[in-house]
Amino acid sequence: MIRGKTMRAAAASAAAILLATAAGPAAAGTSSVLKSIVLPGTGQAQDGHYTRAAIFASAAIISWTGLFATQINYARSAEKYNNEKRTYLSYADLTAGGQVVLQEDIESTYAEMQSAWDQADHDETWRNVFIGALVVTYAVNIVDIVRSKPDTGEVAPAEPSTSLEWRGDGFRLVRTVRF
């Protein structure tokens, strides 16, 4: 089960990108597209676009690293919140069962639970930022590799230069062709 709107949106985006890439016609080679799906930038590197390759690879590595780091933080704070919540709700069962519970314990647990909730909210926001960054990186990367052509190293021939020269009674069009 995938929990949360952000998670579902990210999973759906990733699936859409993969499907679009798999189904759509590719200007670049299939091999470079697959490489870019695995790690953004590698397909561009194979096609000779090294600057774009460096940009996409850096963005992907930063996004993945940030995502895992923030996910670990979020998992910890969410677990802490769930523990505090479990303790807090257990007071209702204890008092209903006839056991006396200190008011200070109930209030301090509530404060801890509130604090853990706020921290989890904060950590979740940062986790979602990195999910968004990762989705955008992959999406732009896939679009780029699908639309780009391999850099063969050939230099396009220069356009023939054309100039216009004014004469006393008119003008002369001069086109220079180099061999």
């Binding site: 089960m1 995938i2 929990r3 949360g4 998670m7 990210a10 999973a11 990733a14 799906i37 695995v38 790690l39 993945w64 995502l67 895992f68 996910q71 979020y74 998992a75 704070s77 969410a78 677990e79 919140y81 769930n82 919540k85 807090y88 709700l89 007071y91 209702a92 008092t95 109930i106 509530y110 639970m113 853990a116 909730w117 989890a120 909210d121 979740e124």
Partner: peptide, 29 residues
């Protein structure tokens, strides 16, 4: 293998993570 590792990472992130939901109402005591 690389693709499977990547897929496993995505699944680990999206499926198995704990989340914080449903802040409880104050106890009715």
């Amino acid at each position: 293998v690389l693709a499977l590792v990547l897929l496993a990472g995505v699944l680990a992130v999206t499926v198995g993570c704990p989340s914080h939901e449903d802040f409880p109402q104050p106890l009715d005591v």
